[in-house]
Amino acid sequence: MKVLVAVKRVVDYNVKVRPKADGSDVDTANVKMSINPFCEIAVEEAVRLKEKGVVSEIVAVSMGPKQCQEQIRTALALGADRGILVETAEELQPLAVAKCLKAIVEKEEPQMVIMGKQSIDGDNNQTGQMLGALTGMAQGTFASEVVVEDGAVKVTREIDGGLQTVELKLPAVVTTDLRLNEPRYASLPNIMKAKKKPLDTTTPADLGVDITPRTKTLKVEPPAERQAGVKVADVAELVEKLKNEAKVI
């Protein structure tokens, strides 16, 4: 079966972003960009399913500026077969991304769409669920285990109290949580090979999707700073401070 994997270009997780001085946006000039960690887990899961013989083809999709090709190439180096870039310089909000993905799903007809549960920039945790709604597909969010059998997929989900398992008819959307797998490193030969894999480019307009933003960011600001407190010499002093100064015990 065919699997579609969505990958997002985000500020690398090691970078501590800051708001611009005018508070209009975050400052992402000259910072390192990477594939969103949850998306990398999605690619890895698709590749493992292919290695098991469950999946025959993996299509990696990304959306945004031309540079998103880099993240698609990363997915191709990890084992995806071909890429699609939905290119736009405009802001893409999760609803718009879900609409573009729906258009691609209609064209490609994958049996499963695997994507990250959230991106570490917007922290929205929405797109997979919205793609499910727009296509009518079932959704298995926050997955820690994915088992495909008999035209269905069993997804074990990380929920607040523990784990929940649901069974979804295919086609379905799966969003990955951290412990689904540990992504491999791309080998140099695979990175070289990835450069020759096909990568098509389209646009939201070609897909017939209106991407007009529905929300506007009025300002961004740093959170209230916490001041570092004091170092205590020993446990006795800690207990004394908690009792008499902080009065929390």
């Binding site: 669920q129 709604a133 926050f142």
Partner: peptide, 21 residues
């Protein structure tokens, strides 16, 4: 996790861009 799982799906059915968290 229950709200995060369900709410964006409801929003998309209403053609709304939700605001999380």
């Amino acid at each position: 996790t229950t709200g995060k799982n369900m709410l964006p799906r409801a929003a998309a059915l209403l053609d709304v861009q939700p605001i999380s968290d």
